[in-house]
């Protein structure tokens, strides 16, 4: 493998990172909304949110990608490769992130909430000052896990024509008829990206850690 091809592999790793990051970010926003809907007392909100989560966790991501790319044109919505990949990745990770967040909120101990009520906090205050900070801390490890999952799952998006890290390795393997160095290089680059995400997650945990005075 030449330096030029290696540089192109690194560039492809950048594409993988960018698409994964955007999907995680959009997924987090949608995930928060879906989690809110699932925790809401209203059935009108809870029902569709549960349907959403069961669909996007129930159908394999690969199938979702193919659905968005090949099925939407049948009703006149012909989205581009990158759009199909981002929509599928974001909507899928949103379902998982909503569940992670819901788990975080459900793990906030009742005793703490009762204590907050006892010191006179209003409902909204309890939510903002007790539930949210604790739930976020409890959710971060799961969020990091999900981010790594999406980083790796993004290897699938070449089925809709996005040229990311794995596809670049495949292309070069096919061109040179020498697959090993490219797959090895892709593996190492994924490992590097994964460590980057882990580092960010740890920094976030440190930042949010409860400091005892």
């Amino acid at each position: 493998m030449t330096w030029f091809l290696f540089a192109l592999m690194v560039q492809a790793a950048g594409t993988t990172l960018l698409i994964s990051f955007v999907a995680i970010a959009i997924g987090l926003v949608i995930g928060i909304l879906v989690c809110g809907a699932m925790l809401s007392p209203s059935v009108v909100l809870r029902g569709p949110a549960r349907l959403y989560v069961s669909f996007f966790r129930g159908v394999p991501l690969l199938v979702q990608l193919l659905l968005f790319y090949h099925l939407l044109p049948a009703i006149g919505i012909n989205i581009s490769s990158v759009a199909a990949a981002l929509v599928a990745l974001s909507l899928c990770t949103a379902a998982y992130q909503a569940e992670n967040l819901r788990g975080g909120f459900l793990s906030v101990s009742r005793g703490l909430l009762e204590a907050a009520e006892a010191v006179g906090m209003e409902r909204l205050q309890r939510f903002r000052r007790v539930s949210v900070p604790i739930a976020i801390r409890l959710t971060i490890p799961a969020l990091v896990n999900e981010a790594i999952g999406i980083l790796h799952a993004s290897a699938l998006i070449s089925v809709v024509g996005v040229i990311e890290l794995t596809k670049t390795a495949r292309n070069f393997a096919a061109t040179t008829f020498d697959p090993l160095p490219f797959y090895a290089c892709a593996g190492l680059l994924y490992l590097g990206l994964t460590y980057g995400v882990l580092g960010l997650g740890r920094a976030a945990e440190r930042h949010l850690a409860v400091r005892h005075a």
């Binding site: 949608i30 569709p48 959403y52 669909f55 659905l67 939407l72």
Partner: peptide, 9 residues
């Protein structure tokens, strides 16, 4: 939003 996505599907 979620409903619309489902309807779309």
């Amino acid at each position: 939003m979620t409903r619309r996505a489902l309807l779309l599907f």
